[in-house]
Amino acid sequence: MNAIHTAAVMHDVTTELLQAWPLPMPGVGGDKEERGHVLVLGGSREMPGAVILAATAALRAGAGKLTVATGASVAQLVALAMPEARVIGLAETEAGGFQLDAIARLDPLADRVDAVLIGPGMQDEAAAAELVHGLLGRLQGSDTVVVLDACAMGTLLHAPQGWDPGKAFRFEQPVIVTPHCGEMAHLTGTPKPEIVAAPDARAADAAVKWNAVVALKGARTVIAAPDGEMWQHEGGNVGLAISGSGDTPAGIIAGLAARGADLAQATCWGVALHARAGERLAARLGVLGYLAREIPDEIPALLESIAGHGAGTGRSVEQA
């Protein structure tokens, strides 16, 4: 693990870096298909808002089409809150997850979506893992980007049927995972204080072991790719430490991936946009008290600002 960390070059996610790494843009005459189709799979009876937050963030990040798959008990509520989306209601388990027949319900979408976000607002980790493994099998060999957040990251702890019980689970194709330090402790069995003390090494090690782009979130977020490349982003404020805030960066990342950004690019941009949205809200409303639902509204202007300001200085209006 230390060898991985010391060998890696750590890139700072600054405005200058983002400007040198521009996001894919649709043509002047491009339609919503060219902007990408994102599927957000999540929500539950107790947390229907999480999937709404993530889905809104995906659209604000520029995705052109949105499908939301959520529990049948809350599907109508989500549809009313998200008139832009197609909403699919899925049968639920007693523990608040989705039954396995959800794979068959979603199968027709598998060849039509560019990015899939799984996890916001989901409950029943074991059921979520079974569903993720089924969907990964269906998407095998495709170009669809998979983003795992919240409960769906527990897939790493529940290997699929037929997996060698003596081997730790590893994704066949790279995915994006977005744990904070507490979730990383749950996924690795490493005490949280040890992760907080050495996040670079922990993220780098996990990226290689899991075959995933790992965004280990915090005041300083560390992003690690399976090939050993690493990035760090410092920014945002304590106001982002609020209920629902974690659903928004996952949605932003999925929206950017649907537009055609690769896994590392979507993750770096998504982390930066989320932090800077918090900075803009704090400047306008105060550091404490702004809401997670307000974060996505800042994203379109930030995308324009990063692209159009601070060239050659590494600073945008938000960093000044």
Rank of each mutant, 00 (worst) to 15 (best):
P296R: 06
E125L: 06
A292W: 02
V40M: 12
A301M: 05
G228M: 11
D227K: 01
S245L: 08
V147F: 05
G64D: 07
L100M: 14
S142T: 15
A266Y: 10
H158E: 07
R280S: 11
M122K: 10
H233Q: 08
D149H: 08
E94F: 09
V214P: 05
R284H: 06
T155A: 14
G251E: 05
D143E: 14
D143A: 15
P108D: 09
L41E: 11
D247M: 13
R45Y: 07
P193W: 09
W163S: 14
R202W: 01
A250S: 15
V317I: 14
S73K: 12
A152H: 09
L41P: 12
I299Q: 00
Q99S: 12
A292V: 03
A152G: 13
G29S: 08
L288T: 08
I253W: 02
M82W: 02
G218F: 02
Q140C: 08
K167S: 09
I242S: 15
K192E: 15
E172V: 08
G312C: 00
D143L: 09
C151Q: 13
E92P: 13
V9T: 12
D101M: 10
A283N: 11
A277W: 11
R284D: 09
D200W: 10
A277Y: 09
T267Y: 01
I52G: 01
D107A: 15
H5M: 02
A207N: 11
W21Q: 12
T178Q: 05
G97N: 12
W163E: 14
P24D: 08
I52E: 06
K167P: 00
A129P: 12
P48D: 04
D247S: 13
R220V: 11
L156I: 08
L136R: 12
A72F: 02
E183T: 00
G260W: 04
W210Q: 07
E183Y: 02
G308H: 00
Q19K: 06
D101G: 10
E229C: 06
V51P: 03
A204F: 04
T67C: 04
P120D: 12
R112L: 14
T67M: 01
L135S: 04
L157N: 02
A20V: 02
E172H: 11
L117P: 13
H309D: 06
G89Q: 11
G89K: 12
R86I: 13
L23S: 02
L66G: 08
C268M: 08
P174N: 02
Q140A: 15
V146S: 07
A152W: 06
G270W: 01
P193S: 12
T267G: 05
G218C: 03
G29N: 14
M230P: 04
G49P: 05
V38P: 10
A204I: 03
E318Y: 00
P249V: 12
G134D: 12
F98H: 11
P249I: 13
E46Q: 13
R315W: 01
C181R: 06
Q19H: 04
Q232I: 09
I118L: 14
L23I: 04
P249H: 08
A20I: 03
G36S: 11
A204P: 05
A104E: 15
G228P: 13
P174E: 00
T178Y: 01
